[in-house]
């Protein structure tokens, strides 16, 4: 019972702060802060769904690293206020709201009702031991490829952001 209440509360927080990020047209820093709130609420949802390691990674990587990178770039480029707010024409606003509602209804309509009920899980489901066992046996090749991807991303980011010499 308390699990269900916590799930709906965290979902509401995540949705409201996600809307706050998308609809905040004045202040980019506040938008990034709303994204942090969404990430933390989603990590609470992950705990309720027995993904404890993923919840910790979510806070460390998303809220800790990725959003800090966003804030760093916003402050480096001095873009705190969003100077090119969306168009003020009412018809564009109306079409945007209609698109949002249409996309939401389409996605919700795809959900099949009457899915099978949850399978009982062991106590250690979702802890680091079980995740590591799966990751380093069945998925060891994707794991190595992920390290290659990260290397390529580091090299690419350094080359892109480097000031041209000549």
């Amino acid at each position: 019972m308390i699990e269900t209440i916590a799930f709906y509360f965290l979902s509401a927080v995540a949705i409201v702060s996600a809307l706050g990020m998308v609809l905040n047209v004045r202040n980019t820093v506040a938008g990034a802060m709303s994204l942090v709130v969404t990430m933390i609420a989603l990590s609470g949802v992950f705990v309720l769904l027995q993904a404890h390691l993923i919840a910790a990674l979510q806070i460390m990587i998303y809220a800790g690293a990725i959003v800090v990178l966003f804030l760093f770039v916003v402050m480096l480029l001095n873009l705190r206020t969003d100077e090119f707010a969306p168009s003020r024409q009412p018809i564009v606003k109306f079409l945007g709201a209609a698109l949002a509602i249409y996309v939401g209804i389409q996605f919700l309509g795809q959900i099949e009702l009457g899915l099978p009920a949850a399978v009982e899980t062991a106590d250690d489901f979702g802890n680091y031991r079980m995740l590591a066992r799966t990751l380093f046996t069945d998925y060891v090749l994707p794991f190595e490829m992920a390290s290659l991807l990260l290397l390529a991303a580091i090299v690419g980011a350094v080359i892109l952001a480097k000031r041209r010499v000549s």
Binding site: I66, L115, T121, L135, P142
Partner: peptide
């Protein structure tokens, strides 16, 4: 969680890796 399989959580780790690379 619904099917008590760890594979989904492994895929989430891959998605987080791709997201970090994409942001950089």
């Amino acid at each position: 969680r619904n099917w008590a399989q760890m594979d989904g959580q492994v895929f989430v780790m891959m998605v987080i890796t791709v997201a970090a690379a994409e942001v950089a």
